[in-house]
Design a protein around this nucleic acid. Structure first.
Lengths: 146, 146
DNA sequence: TTGAAGTAGTTGCATAAACAACTATATGTC
DNA sequence: GACATATAGTTGTTTATGCAACTACTTCAA
């Protein structure tokens, strides 16, 4: 028997990810209350483009841990909102490069502040040491399964 | 400035819950490979009914951290699969009590085993002490936001 | 006892996810 | 060069979520 085996009663919250659901909902609410009309999923795509503009859809799949149809449709919706644009690559005509549109620039600072603020609300009463360990565990879980 | 403030680069995985997404996907895959044809969300409802049969839809909302429309539709689908049944309460005619149907009994042991096995795959290389701290942090986050 | 407020559940709509099947383009090998 | 294989992206279908608006029933208070 593995020494990591969970007692049955403890399974549920790990698998269902209640905490990250709660953070995402709170961030969505904070976006809305501040007049930011995008979804968390759309924001997660913009987040990676703010780090590096001009990624292919496949690179966005890898960065956001989503499959290709999901990114196709998120980019569809972000294009409708005029926050990104698709540009066909000249080297490889299969590839769409995704670039931030002017409207997205103004969202960066505001949404990053709201995200930091939301995490601070979430982490009241948690020490930095505990946060480090939790992050480590979640990273190992992710690496074990990916 | 809060001493819990995250550096920007660390925001993303906490908010998007990559680890719990990965666990849920792996469990879904393990269900499928073993011929268990239900979704993780449906399983999460059954999970609570196995702990206590005969819960109202509202109690399922609280237990699974979902809103009422979500539970209405999950119960709709579980009823179609003949895994649960709705029974109108006689005391309070607003309430549907949800009971496990015979087909659900046989799933309990198998899916619980698969869930434990999935968690063990996920937690390879993580110590019990780290798991305890991670669980604590996630619980505090949840309590801070709910 | 009746009218207001609260609670349980449902329905409609928009967004998103997973999976399979598909098109178009590129690459690598004979 | 031609064909097999791989890669990038799209589309269709089913399931699920969040929010708002709604119905039905219950409770509470004047």
């Amino acid at each position: 028997m593995s020494n990591n085996e969970f007692k049955r009663g403890e399974l549920y919250s790990f698998i269902t990810g209640k905490a990250s659901t709660a953070i995402a909902r709170r961030l969505q609410k904070n976006f809305k209350q501040n007049g930011v009309d995008i979804t968390i999923e759309q924001w997660s795509v913009l987040y990676h483009l703010w780090k590096q503009d001009g990624l292919s859809q496949q690179q966005l799949c890898d960065a956001t841990f989503r499959d290709k149809p999901s990114i196709t449709r998120l980019v569809d919706n972000l294009e409708k909102l005029k926050l990104v644009k698709r540009v066909a690559s000249k080297n490889d005509r299969r590839i769409n490069m995704i670039y931030l549109a002017p409207g997205a620039q103004s969202l960066q600072e505001q949404t990053m502040d709201l995200a930091n603020q939301t995490l601070n609300e979430a982490l009241v009463g948690v020490t930095n040491g505990q946060i480090e360990i939790a992050k480590e565990v979640l990273q190992v879980v992710y690496d074990n399964l990916k």
